[in-house]
Write a protein that binds this DNA or RNA. Structure first.
Lengths: 162, 162
DNA sequence: TATTGTTATACTCTATAACTATA
DNA sequence: TATAGTTATAGAGTATAACAATA
C-alpha cells in the first residue's frame, strides 16, 4: 500500500479544529488554573464578573453558557476561597449579584498575565500577525452567539462529549 | 448604578472564545449528527478514517485526542451500524485498521454537505472572507497540536468541564 | 517484556426535578 | 403565577486498572 501524503494539514471540519485547539489550550492552561477553584470555568466566572457591573447569577450563567445549578457550586467554591461574594440585589431581593473581591481581582490579573504565555503555546503554529487575526475573529464570532436561552441544557449534554 | 457599555465585544480570553464557539457549533450540528452513532465524535472517526490509509485504532485515537478505551465503544456502534469495519493488519496481527464501508462513505459525504450550512450558522458574525480566514487559521493552529502522546488522559479530564 | 485492543469498576460531571424565597 | 437561587437524585461519560492476544 503506497504511502499517502502526510504533510497536508488536517482536512478537518470546523468542529474538529475547534475541539483540538480547545483541548490543546486547556492542556496548556492546566498548570496555571489548577490552583483556582473550578479551574477554567472558575476563571471565566471571575473574568466575566469583574468585567462590568456585577451580574446576577442567572445572567452570568447565560453569558458562560452553563446551567444555573452548576454555577451555584462554582460560586460556592469561589466564595469559600474569598475570590467572590454574593451580594443581595437591592432592586430584586430574589437575585444575587456576583461581586469580585480585592483578592479575586488580584488573582484574576495575575492569571490573565500567565495565560498570555499559554495562548502563545496553543497558537504556536501561527506567526504573531496571524495569531492576532485569529484572536480577533474568534472573539467576534463567539460574541455573536446567543449563549443563553433554554438551549443551554441541550447543548451542554453535547459539549461534554467532544 | 449607571448602565455600563454593553455593546463592546466580549473581552474574553482565547479559552472562553473557543468554548463558546464550539458550544454554538455543536448545538447547530446537533440535528445533523443526531442520527450518527457517537454524534460529533462518530463523525470525526468517519472523517479521519476515510481521509487516508485506514489507520489503526491507536493512531485514530491519538489523532482525535480521545482515549483508546473510548474509541472501542465508538467503533462498536459504528460497526454495528455498518459504517466501518475492523480489518486485521496483515503486518501486525495485534492491530486493527478502521476501514470505512461504502455505506459509511456515502453517509460521510452527505453529512459533510449538511455540515457546511451548519458552519455558516456558527460563523454568522463574520463576513465570507473572514469566515474563510478563520477556517484556515483554525486548521493550521489545530494541525500543529500534538494531539497524541500520553497527554490525552490528562487533558480529557479537563475537556469535559469547559 | 512491551504493545494493541477489550472489558469492568469507580468516579466525576451533568440533567432533571423538587424546594424556598421573593416578585 | 412566575422567577432567582439552592439542593438532591439519577443518569451519562470518563479514567483507571485489569485482561487476552500478539510482537
Amino acid at each position: 500500500m503506497a504511502q499517502p501524503a502526510q504533510n497536508a494539514e488536517h482536512p478537518v471540519d470546523l468542529g474538529l479544529a475547534l475541539s483540538l485547539l480547545l483541548r490543546s489550550y486547556l492542556h496548556a492552561s492546566q498548570a496555571v488554573l489548577a490552583e483556582l477553584p473550578g479551574g477554567p470555568r472558575g476563571y471565566h466566572v471571575l473574568a466575566r464578573a469583574a468585567y462590568e457591573c456585577p451580574p446576577t447569577q442567572l445572567a452570568l450563567a447565560h453569558q458562560l453558557g452553563i446551567d444555573r445549578t452548576v454555577l451555584t457550586y462554582l460560586l460556592d467554591d469561589l466564595e469559600q476561597a474569598g475570590l467572590i461574594e454574593r451580594k443581595a440585589d437591592p432592586a430584586d431581593r430574589r437575585a444575587r449579584r456576583v461581586v469580585v473581591t480585592e483578592a479575586g481581582t488580584a488573582t484574576l490579573h495575575r492569571l490573565q498575565g500567565e495565560l498570555g504565555s499559554v495562548e502563545n503555546v496553543a497558537l504556536r503554529g501561527l506567526d504573531p500577525a496571524e495569531q492576532q487575526t485569529l484572536r480577533t475573529l474568534l472573539q467576534r464570532a463567539a460574541g455573536h452567539q446567543d449563549s443563553g436561552e433554554g438551549a443551554c441544557s441541550v447543548v451542554n449534554a453535547v459539549v461534554s462529549t467532544i
